[in-house]
């Protein structure tokens, strides 16, 4: 039996959530993503899963600029809670910012990605997220990301 994969994505931008869902649907993985609009909802969802003894997501993808609980704040919260601290977190930002990258690395994020500019790239990103959960893909480490930063 194939492993049940859940990916939790948080983004306050409705269009981005829509595009993301569309991308997963296009590669026949429509049920994999669970999309929420901010960090608070991330914590709520995880708490719900935990109490219901449901399936915790294999990956959390966080947008950085979100109202109420931002990406970095959410990351910090997650890494402080015993049950969630081992869930890999990828930061999904609209721009490269080396300072944010340093901060995210320190807080324990797995990697940092810049949001795609084309539909194809979105499809590829969705596939990579899924493959990562099946240990078929690995994301570049922070050090190489920061070194490549120009």
């Amino acid at each position: 039996m194939e492993k049940v994969v859940k990916i939790l994505l948080a983004d306050d931008d409705l269009e981005d959530r829509y595009i993301m869902q569309d991308a997963f649907s296009a590669i026949n993985l429509a049920h994999v993503p669970f999309l929420v609009e901010d960090g608070e909802k991330v914590l709520e969802y995880l708490a719900q899963m935990h109490s219901d003894e449901g399936i915790l997501p294999s990956l959390v993808v966080l947008d950085l600029n979100m109202p109420r609980l931002s990406g970095t704040q959410t990351l910090r919260e997650l890494k402080n809670i015993e049950h969630y601290k081992d869930i890999p977190v990828i930061i999904f930002s609209s721009s490269l910012n080396v300072i944010e990258m340093h901060e995210c690395r320190q807080l324990g994020a797995l990697s940092y990605m810049v949001k795609p500019f084309t539909y194809e790239e979105y499809l590829l990103s969705a596939q990579h997220f899924y493959d990562f959960c099946l240990s078929k893909h690995s994301f570049p480490e922070f050090n190489s990301l920061i070194n490549n930063f120009k």
């Binding site: 931008d13 269009e15 595009i19 609209s94 721009s95 910012n97 949001k115 795609p116 500019f117 084309t118 539909y119 979105y122």
Partner: peptide, 20 residues
């Protein structure tokens, strides 16, 4: 420039999508 980037990314994304 950071905030300009966000809507621009959408414009590029949609035009790319539409074109394809």
């Amino acid at each position: 420039s950071h905030d300009l980037q966000e809507p621009l990314r959408k414009i590029v994304f949609y035009s790319d999508y539409l074109y394809k």
